[in-house]
Amino acid sequence: MHPVLDVQRVKKIYGQGETEVQALRGVSLTVERGDYVAIMGSSGSGKSTLMNILGCLDIPTTGKYLLDGVDVSRLNDRQLALVRNRRIGFVFQAFNLIARTSALANVELPLAYAGVKGAERRRRANLALSMVGLADRAGHEPNQLSGGQQQRVAVARALVTAPALVLADEPTGNLDTQSTNDVLAVFDRLSASGRTIVLITHEPDVAERAKRLIRLVDGHIVQDERLK
């Protein structure tokens, strides 16, 4: 059995010459199916960079990344689109909701690209929104929502396709304790049902809910410990 995620000596270098930044300096990591991993590290340590590569949204400068045993760099546009749509639920640090489009339509979007028909799509999107406590905000557009509400819409959008792999970049960064607990409860349930979760956080009590904790410093993994 392949590990779900298999990162081999990945480096990511931004820019060149004077402005060159080594965001990842040779990261190796495997994550097994059903694991629940929290990544911590100071700001600028390369957490989001790593997450974007895991989500097939960016490519490493050097090194290899296998998703379910498949080298992602060999996939074409169509196959990548399928992977992003069916396998991965991605929560952006910056939410990235589509402007002037209702919360419901935003959440429906991945289902639409998956070819789910209108009525079924709406039903599942509404369900995902109520899971994050936003059933009453379905018709609101992003600029009519608070930061925390936007974040929860982004979480709902990542979960609506019931993906086997959830990648969440600080999904609770803008939330109060109550909303944080709601979202984490959803993650706990997903984990219990066998999904693989990788989540970035700055908060120790969020990290405590995970089964495994990884610390990044300056593009290196400095700590990798199993909590449960």
């Binding site: 989500g55 949204l57 169509r78 689109a81 749509n85 909701l97 589509i98 979007l109």
Partner: peptide, 10 residues
């Protein structure tokens, strides 16, 4: 970018 991240093919 968002649409592609959510799985829209080119």
């Amino acid at each position: 970018g968002i649409r592609k991240a959510l799985g829209a093919p080119k």
